[in-house]
Design a protein around this nucleic acid. Sequence first.
DNA 1: AGCACGCCGACT
DNA 2: GTCGGCGTGCTC
Length: 743
Amino acid sequence: MSRVYADVIVDISQEKLDKTFQYEVPEALQKQAEIGKQVRISFGNGKRELTGYIVGLSGEAKIAPERIKPILKVEEKGMEIESRLISLAAWIAREYGSTMNQALKTVLPVKAKERTKEKRYLCLREKEETCAELLEEYKRKHYKAKERLLQALLENETLEYSDVTGRLKITASVIRSFREQGLVQVIRERDYRNPVAKRGEVQEVSPLKLTPLQEQVCEEIFQEWETPNPRPCLIKGVTGSGKTEVYMKLISHVLEQGQQVIVLIPEIALTYQNVSRFYRRFGNCVALINSRLSKGERFDQLEQAKKGEVSIVIGPRSALFTPFPNLGLILIDEEHEDSYKSEKTPCYHARETAICRGEMEGARVVLGSASPSVESYYKGKTGEYRLLYLEERYGASQLPEVSVVDLKEELKTGNRSVFSSLLTEKIRERLMKKEQVMLFLNRRGYTGFVSCRSCGHVMKCPHCDVSLTSHRNGKLICHYCGYETRDVKRCPICGSPYIGGFKAGTQQIEALVQKSFPGARVLRMDADTTKRKDDHERILAAFAKGEADILIGTQMIVKGHDFPNVTLVGVLAADLSLCSEDYRAAEKTFQLLLQAVGRAGRGNRPGEAVIQTYHPEHYSIQAAKSQNYEEFYEKEIQYRMLMEYPPAAAMAAIRGACENEELLKEAMSYCRKYLERIYPKEDLILIGPAPETVAKVQDSYKMVLYMRHKSRPALVRLKDALERYIAVNKGFQSIYIQFDFNV
DNA sequence: AGCACGCCGACT
DNA sequence: GTCGGCGTGCTC
C-alpha cells in the first residue's frame, strides 16, 4: 500500500496560518480521508492538538518525509459547513483549472483579521499601588516592554489589544506573562455592525396573491422538488410577468422547512429599490451583501448566516459561498448576466457552481431570466434543466414599437451625424411632449475593430471569421490566430475612405446632443460619472424625478430601473458588440438590445425604440426588433452547432502572462505543440496562441491559446497533463499560466 | 496563534 | 557565568 499524504489547513480560526501543511494519512484512516473532512492533528512542537480540514490529497511528500506527522483522527460527524465549502473549492479548482489555494480564497474569503472581528481589550486588574510598585521594579530591572505596557495601563485602564501590539510594540509573550500574574485581563467584545440598515418599515405583507399562471409555475417547481434528483429549474419570464412573486413563494416554502436561501442578483441591479421587496416581505432575516460592504461588515453578515440569525442572503456572485448550515435553495435572477462569471482565477461561473453546491448540499437551484443564456436555454430544451414559462404580462403594458435604421443608408443620403434622421425627429417629438428619452451607446466588446462607414464592411481575419483589431503600430491583428496585416486606408469592398475604428464615447455623444437639441437637459451615465459609490443611484434618481430630458449611457442604463416617463429609447450603433471577436457576440448584442428596447414605455404610454445599425439584416438585430427570443435562439443555436461552439462543444482558454514577449511566445507555442503531441486526434481544435485583446498590461505581455473539444472532461484531462508539463519545465518558471474553462 | 531559540543587558 | 526579557521564525 502506497503512502497517502493530505494537505491540511489548520483550524481556520487560527488566523495567520493560511498555508497548508502536509500530514500522512495512516492506512487505517485512508478510507475516511476525503477533501473537506475535519481532522485532528498535532501541530508545532509539543503537545498542541488542533482541528484542521483536508484540502487536498496526494501521493508525494513535498518536504522530507520524516518530518511529516500522521493524522490522528478523521472526524466523522456529518460534514460541517466549512467542510462542504472546502469540497466545493476542490470542485472549483478541478473544474476551472485553478490551484486549491486560489479556490479556497474564493470560497472562504473570511480570512485573517476579519475572522476574529471581536475586538479585544486589555484591562488592568490590580490596585493602583501594587502597579506603581511593579512599575518601579520594572524600571529598576530595565524590563522595557513591561514598563511601557504598565505605564500605558496606568494612564488608561483599558487598552485596545491591537493598539498594544501595534503602537506600543508589545509582544504576545509579555501580555501572556501579565495575564498569568493576574495583572491584566483580556476582554473580548463582539461588536456586530448591521448594515442591513434598520431602514425602518418592515411591515408584514399579507400572503401574496398569485396569478393562476404564477401559481402553476410554482406547483411545477414543487413537483420537481419532490422527485429524488430534482433538476435545476429555469423560469423564462418576460419582464413584468411577476417572476419576483414566484421567487417569494418559493422562498417562503423553503423557509418553512427551516432551510436557508441564497438569492443571487447581478451586482449592477443590487440597489435598495430592487431588494426592498425582500425586506418588506421577509423582514430582518434578510441580509444584503454587496461590494460596498467593508470586509468586516461582510464577515459579520456571513457569521450571522452561519449562526442562523439570517436565513436569506441577497448578493452578487460571491454571495453563493454564504456558509448556511442547511441551505435549501439557490435562486439566480437574470441568469444570463455575465457578471456571474468571475474574471479572476478561478474563473468560475456562479450558475454551474451553484448547481454543484446544490447537489452537494441537497439544495435546489432555480434560475430566472427574461432572455436566458443560450447555454441554459439549450439545457432547458434538452431536459437537463426543467424549463418553465411565465410569459404573460399583467397590466396592459404593450411591447414597445421598434424601428431599425440602416446607417449605411443614412450615409448615402448624406447624413454623417451620429443620429439618424428618424431618431432626430423622434427625439424632437418627445422633447416637445415633455417626455423622456434614453440614448444607449453600446460599448460592449468595443476593442477597436475597423469598419467602413459607407458599406458597413468590417475588416475580418481571412482564417477565423472574427474581426481584426487595430493596434497602435498601424497593424490589424487577429486575436484568434495571430494573423497580421497592414491597416487599410480605403475600404477593400467599396473603396470608400470613410473607414476606421469606431470612436465615439458618451462624452462626444453628450456634446452632440447638446448641439443638435439645444435646451434639452442632459444627464450622462458612464464609468466617468459614476466613480463615487452613490453616483449610480443618484443619477438614476435625478432622471426618475424628471430633472433631465435625455439620459445618455452605456450598458449600465439598461439594467433594471423603470422610468415611466421614458417613451423613447435610442440605440446608437447597435453592432459595436456584434463585431467583437467573441463567439457570444450575437448573444450579447441581442441581450443588450432587448433590455434597452424594454426600457421604453413602462407606464401606460406606449413606448418606441430606434435601433441604429450597420447590419439591419443580422438575426440578433431582427430578433431584437420583434422582441422575439425564440427566433433569436433558433438561429443562434444553429450557428453554435454548426461552428461547434458551446454548448455544442466545450472550450477552454490557456492564458499566459510574462514580461518577456519572446519567451512568452515560445512558451505558448510549446504548450500547443505539447497538446498536439499528447492528443494527436482531429477532434481537438486548438486556436492560437495569439495576443490577448489587451495584449500588454503593466509591462506584462498576455497571450491566449484556446482548446475546443466535444467533451469537457477531455479538456480537463488535457489541462491536467499540461499543468504537469509546465510544472516540470524550467522554461515556464517566469511565465504565469492560468486556465479558464468558461470562455 | 503559540512556542522554541538565541541575542543581549543586568545581576551574582 | 547565569538569568530572563524580548524579537524572530517555524509549525507538516
